[in-house]
Amino acid sequence: MQENYETVTSLGFPIPKPELIARLERGEEPWGEEGRLLRCTRT
């Protein structure tokens, strides 16, 4: 997922960073409040 995000942004498409990638970069667990893996949603 991160590789896909980086590829798309390197082509000049301004898309928001998915929350899952942002959490992993901050060193946080990828789990949501309910204990489930965060899903990517379209914005």
Rank of each mutant, 00 (worst) to 15 (best):
R26P: 02
E25Q: 00
L38R: 09
E34W: 10
I15F: 06
V8C: 04
G32S: 11
N4D: 13
R39M: 09
E34H: 11
E28V: 06
K17Y: 12
W31E: 00
E3L: 14
N4A: 15
P30E: 02
R23W: 07
V8F: 04
V8Q: 00
L37S: 12
G35C: 02
E6K: 10
Y5Q: 10
E28G: 04
R23G: 00
P14S: 14
V8P: 02
L38N: 08
P16D: 11
E29W: 00
R39V: 15
L37I: 01
V8K: 04
N4M: 15
T43A: 09
C40T: 08
R42N: 03
I15Q: 00
T41A: 14
C40G: 09
M1W: 01
P18V: 10
P18I: 10
C40I: 07
P18S: 06
E28P: 03
R36E: 07
L37R: 12
R36I: 00
R36A: 13
Y5K: 12
G32H: 09
N4Y: 06
I15L: 14
P14F: 10
C40Q: 05
Y5S: 08
L37F: 00
I15Y: 00
R26A: 09
E34K: 13
Y5E: 13
G12P: 15
E6W: 01
R26V: 01
Y5T: 09
P18E: 03
P30F: 04
T9H: 03
S10N: 03
L37Q: 05
W31G: 06
G27E: 09
E33G: 07
T7K: 12
G12L: 13
M1T: 13
E19L: 05
G12S: 14
E6N: 14
P14N: 15
F13R: 11
K17W: 14
N4T: 13
R42H: 04
E19G: 06
I15S: 00
P16F: 07
T41L: 15
P14H: 06
L38P: 03
I15D: 03
C40L: 09
T7N: 11
R42W: 01
G35V: 00
G27H: 09
Y5N: 11
L37Y: 03
E6A: 10
R36L: 08
T43S: 13
